[in-house]
């Protein structure tokens, strides 16, 4: 049999190309070409009518001219803080919720699962608007509720204070997206066969120990995926800040993320004219940051994760 096939000339397998073509075409058209366009635009200066190549000039300006670099690094620092809050609050919370949900004795599991996941599918416009209203010192229910619990003096206009605004927004983002890690971890927990847990019990590992020693190692690959999704999502974040704080990212730029910085640079704001070349440079830097983060994950973390087959 092996002999017969090796003697025959292999036909060119057209069907592979044909089946790949639609995806490759659409992906190139919608993703690759615009991406290359952005990269190219970031090396130019001037507007449509007279455009000139300046190599890395825009990047030099972005990093060395204090008028640009201070804004950029401020947005970068805020973005890291935003990411850390999401990593430290959203993901552990997601795991906890998933662990609770996978408890077979919990009643109304379906209801909780849906209720916690629903904010994820809400539009960010609704999320931003609803939270702005909830936290509003004028119309919001938060001050009323806090007064009811005799904690009225602790109420602050959180979205308007420099020292709280970014944390508040990060927590709103956590509220919105906690459903994603919860669902992924929940699915991973469900895929662990009962035999493994039963075997562990026979060996005397029960309760919390079972979670730390058996379940957690088994869901680590999922946690890796969640981390990288959070990273990419957070460094692309823009919408929530835009809706809640406008593109001015106030107060005093304390909620400015790379996304809003990019928006102001590229499209302009009020009297500030948009600069598409500078904007592309910012977009390129954002792309490189995300690419770098994903690469670090792929080459260091991903390789060390052990996968278990059942």
């Amino acid at each position: 049999m092996a002999d017969a096939t090796s003697k025959q000339r292999k036909p060119i397998r057209w069907h592979i190309a044909v089946f790949l073509a639609p995806a490759v075409l659409i992906y190139s058209l919608l993703m690759i070409i615009p991406l290359l366009g952005t990269l190219q635009q970031s090396t130019m200066t001037g507007d449509i009518t007279n455009r000139a190549f300046i190599g890395l000039g825009n990047f030099v300006t972005l990093f060395t001219d204090p008028r640009w670099s201070s804004g950029f690094w401020n947005a970068f620092r805020n973005n890291i803080y935003f990411f850390l809050i999401n990593m430290l609050v959203q993901n552990p919370l997601g795991i906890l919720l998933a662990a609770l949900l996978s408890n077979p004795t919990l009643r109304l599991r379906g209801f909780y699962r849906t209720a916690i996941f629903i904010p994820t599918i809400l539009s960010f416009v609704i999320v931003g608007f609803v939270w702005k209203l909830l936290l509003s010192p004028i119309w919001g229910v938060t001050p009323t509720i806090m007064k009811f619990f005799h904690a009225g003096q602790f109420f602050q206009p959180w979205l308007g204070k420099e020292q709280y605004a970014l944390t508040t927004l990060s927590l709103i983002s956590v509220w919105q997206y906690v459903g994603v890690p919860m669902m992924l971890v929940y699915a991973a927990l469900l895929s662990i066969p009962d035999e493994v847990l039963e075997a562990a019990e026979c060996d005397g590992i029960t309760g919390m120990n079972q979670f730390w020693k058996i379940q957690l190692p088994l869901i680590l690959p999922t946690l890796g995926i969640i981390s990288i999704l959070t990273f990419v999502g957070n460094f692309n974040a823009f919408d929530l800040v835009y809706v809640a704080q406008t593109a001015a990212a106030g107060p005093n730029f304390s909620t400015d993320l790379l996304g809003t910085f990019l928006y102001r640079t590229f499209f302009g704001m009020q009297l500030q004219q948009g600069d598409q070349n500078m904007g592309s440079a910012v977009a390129t830097v954002m792309f490189l940051i995300i690419l770098g983060g994903v690469c670090i994950y792929l080459f260091t973390v991903q390789n060390r994760l052990r996968r278990y087959q059942f």
Binding site: W68, A248, P251, Q270
Partner: peptide, 28 residues
Amino acid sequence: TYQILSRGTPNLENDTWTASANVINGTQ
């Protein structure tokens, strides 16, 4: 701030927004 003075970077009008808000807030 509108005529000529908001042509460059940083933009004077937009900076005036931030500055006025800061002054009223008492942070500057």
